[in-house]
């Protein structure tokens, strides 16, 4: 478990404040708007930044007292990583492994297999696609089989097959370990995630399991059809629309957040993970 207490961090104009938070084992999905503090929190958790105020404890070990031990158990993938493009995949992993004190190179081979990178073993990074480079970036974070894994938008630039591969791998890897991953697509992680942490303007707005995330919402989700004219009018006045698409007969299919049915005959549907995020954001803006 990761215990955060009275954490305060100022980064330029932005300030992160978390009074008390306990992150349990399993996969925690870190969500929030751009600039909400997700990356700053991940940098603090990954010990890239050291907390100026407050404390972070990992299974009772603190950054202040046990930094080398913690770093031996931490893997990290930043969102803006640009791998050394002149190195081959294998050499880069070997170099980063050695920096972590890893001299068992069979681990590299197994990661190459797990991430379907074996054909690119001796290919230079600059010859790989964005998704393949991202897979290498995730593989490097797993070199030492760490107990704590912090990923900042790990699926960026990946196609759907790659995304499924990574989610399935991490789901298996998370057993008995702690993974915190910043994501934007909540629904695709629903089966793999254990908890959601919503960062809102530098603070932890919500932390709980997937069921809690979708429960106790102040608004409902409604689906139905309206005419194009109604849609135009509605679109101009309200901002509670989750989804819209054209339907047959010049009508529009809508998915709307509201306390009451917005039109006669509309049907309330259970919220998805994304809906819950939208509702929480919508509630906050109200």
């Amino acid at each position: 478990m990761i215990a955060i207490d009275n954490l305060e961090q100022q980064v330029g104009e932005f300030s992160l404040r978390i009074h008390e938070l306990r992150i349990s084992r399993g996969i925690t999905l870190l969500v929030g708007a751009n600039g909400a503090g997700k990356s700053t929190l991940l940098e603090l958790l990954a010990t890239v930044r050291l907390p100026r105020r407050g404390s972070i404890q990992y299974d009772g070990r603190s950054v202040q007292n046990d930094l080398p031990l913690l770093r031996s158990q931490i893997g990290y993938v930043p969102s803006d990583i640009e791998l050394y493009e002149d190195m081959t995949v294998y050499k880069l992993l070997k170099y980063l492994g050695e920096l972590k004190g890893m001299y068992h190179f069979e681990r590299i081979e197994s990661l190459l297999t797990d991430f379907r990178l074996t054909p690119y073993r001796d290919v230079r990074i600059k010859r790989l696609s964005g998704g393949e480079q991202r897979r290498v970036a995730i593989a490097q974070s797993l070199l030492a089989s760490p107990q704590f894994l912090f990923l900042d938008e790990p699926l960026n630039g990946m196609d759907s097959a790659e995304r499924k591969l990574i989610i399935a791998y991490l789901n298996k890897y998370a057993e008995g370990r702690t993974i915190v991953t910043a994501i934007h697509e909540l629904d695709e992680w629903e089966a793999a995630g254990d908890r959601v942490l919503w960062m809102d303007q530098g603070q932890a707005g919500f932390y709980g399991n997937m069921h809690q995330w979708k429960a106790d919402l102040p608004y409902k989700v409604w689906v139905g059809q309206i005419t194009r004219e109604q849609f135009q009018l509605y679109f101009d006045t309200d901002r509670n629309m989750i989804e819209f698409r054209e339907a047959e007969g010049g009508k529009m299919d809508l998915r709307i957040v509201s306390k009451e049915p917005p039109f006669h005959g509309w049907k309330a549907v259970p919220p998805t993970m994304e809906d819950a995020y939208f509702i929480r954001k919508f509630t906050r803006s109200k």
């Binding site: 770093r71 930043p78 791998l83």
Partner: peptide, 21 residues
């Protein structure tokens, strides 16, 4: 140091005393 902040961050997470690297 590495010029890319991401690589720099990854390289800094090492069990070695970071300054020793």
């Amino acid at each position: 140091r590495s010029w890319n902040p991401g690589m720099r961050a990854v390289e800094s997470i090492t069990p070695y005393p970071p300054a020793l690297v």
